[in-house]
Amino acid sequence: MKHLISIILFIGIIFIAGCGQSNENKGTNKDNNADLTPVKFALDWTPNTNHTGIYVAKEKGYFKEQGLDVEILLPGEVRVNQLLAAEKADFGISYQEGLTQARSEGLPLVSIAAVLQHNTAGYASPKEKGITSPKDFEGKKFGAYGSDLEKAMMTTLMANDNANVDEVDFITTGDADFFVAVERDVDFSLVYYGWTGIEAELRGVDLNMVYLADFSDKLDFYTPIIATSEEMISADPELVKAFTHATVKGYEFAIEHPEEAAQILINAVPDLDPDLVKRSQDWLSPRYQDDAEQFGIQEQDRWQKFADFLLENKIIDEAVDVDQAFTNEFLPDK
């Protein structure tokens, strides 16, 4: 009986010690999580393959390796540039055109990496419309968002092709579905091939594409980009560096492993069409870095040309110091 009691007491002591160790481990894990710096990252649009590197960096633990706990904010009524300027987000997806305009209006935003090295936007139209060059825009209906920049870009392309933009009928369609719009209301619209073009392939819709960058080097601007604020850079440059390094690692993974990266995005956002994500990722992955020496790098010349274009076309009223608008300093050394 004494032996039995001794055994029970011994087992009890081991159990209590084990629980204590378990609780201690839980406490350590909790403390480790608490040590992570919270970061808010704002998306510009519904999650898509422009954003894959962010989701990869989160899923693969690249942000945690840098001591960051990144929360991805879905788009709402307030746009990314305004969220960054108001310090409601720390980083976000923006565009060179939007960021340049924001700086001209006094919002001190900075691009820290290019998501795509070259502009993949172009004028898309069903093949039967016969639109293969800017000259073919004449006499056609264009589905527009309604911005002055749209007309300025089209004017430049058409002038280079000895065509007249006044012969184009601008129809404001806003965010209307491209496929519905070209069936019912317009002949062509501006899209990113990496998403809408790939969707067209899946739908069996043959498109003609007139890419902006093919007809004017002024319009080979960086879109999209990853942006932050001057305040963030000034207040915590080490955090900016940590975030950028993890993000670059995420996109480099997507470049090398498009299939796995696509699945990470699909798992994170189950509402997305898996076939569209996979096909889009295959198309986009080699275009993240493209011909650049490393992912994310930006050139002063391209920022200057586009800023000059905006000023010449009165899209902005004040010249922008492009050296303040972007930086490569937070990219990893290669």
Results as ranks from 00 to 15, higher is better:
His3Lys: 14
Leu4Cys: 00
Leu4Ile: 15
Ile7Ala: 07
Gly12Cys: 06
Ile13Phe: 14
Ile13Trp: 08
Ile16Cys: 05
Ala17Trp: 08
Ala17Gln: 03
Ser22Asp: 06
Asn23Glu: 13
Glu24Phe: 11
Thr28Lys: 13
Asp31Glu: 15
Asp31Trp: 11
Asn32Glu: 13
Asn33Ala: 15
Leu36Ala: 05
Thr37Asn: 08
Pro38Trp: 09
Asp44Asn: 12
Thr46His: 13
Thr52Trp: 04
Thr52Lys: 04
Val56Cys: 11
Lys58Gly: 03
Tyr62Asn: 03
Lys64Thr: 13
Lys64Tyr: 01
Gly67Asp: 09
Leu68Asn: 05
Asp69Met: 06
Asp69Val: 02
Leu74Arg: 12
Pro75Met: 11
Pro75Asp: 10
Val80Pro: 08
Val80Gln: 09
Asn81Ala: 02
Leu83Gly: 06
Leu84Lys: 07
Ala86Tyr: 10
Glu87Lys: 14
Ala89Ser: 12
Phe91Val: 03
Phe91His: 04
Ser94Trp: 04
Glu105Thr: 07
Gly106Ser: 08
Leu109Lys: 08
Val110Leu: 07
Ser111Val: 04
Asn119His: 07
Ala121Ile: 02
Ala124His: 14
Ser125Thr: 10
Pro126Gly: 06
Ile131Ala: 06
Pro134Met: 05
Asp136Gln: 08
Glu138His: 10
Lys140Asn: 04
Lys140Gly: 02
Phe142Ser: 04
Phe142Lys: 01
Phe142Cys: 00
Gly143Val: 00
Ser147Trp: 13
Asp148Lys: 15
Met154Asn: 14
Met154Ser: 04
Leu157Trp: 10
Ala159Gly: 04
Asn160Ile: 00
Asn160Tyr: 07
Phe170Pro: 01
Ile171Gln: 13
Thr173Ser: 01
Asp175Trp: 08
Asp175His: 09
Val182Thr: 15
Glu183Val: 00
Arg184His: 08
Asp185Asn: 11
Val186Met: 07
Leu190Asp: 11
Tyr193Thr: 04
Gly194Val: 02
Asn208Cys: 05
Tyr211Val: 00
Ala213Trp: 03
Asp214His: 13
Lys218Met: 09
Asp220Thr: 01
Thr223Leu: 10
Ile226Trp: 07
Ser229His: 10
Pro237Gly: 09
Val240Trp: 08
Val240Met: 08
Phe243Pro: 00
His245Ala: 11
Val248Ser: 10
Phe253Ser: 00
Ala254Phe: 06
Ile255Cys: 07
Glu259Met: 03
Ala261Lys: 09
Val269Cys: 03
Pro270Met: 02
Asp271Gln: 12
Leu272Ala: 11
Leu272Pro: 02
Asp273Gln: 12
Arg279Gly: 13
Ser285Gly: 01
Ser285Phe: 08
Pro286Met: 11
Pro286Ser: 06
Arg287Ser: 02
Gln289Thr: 14
Asp290Glu: 09
Gln300Lys: 12
Phe306Glu: 05
Phe306Lys: 08
Asp308Phe: 01
Leu310His: 10
Asp317Glu: 14
Asp321Phe: 09
Asp321Tyr: 12
Val322Glu: 13
Ala325Asp: 11
Phe326Trp: 09
Thr327Met: 04
Glu329Gly: 01
Glu329Met: 05
Lys334Met: 06
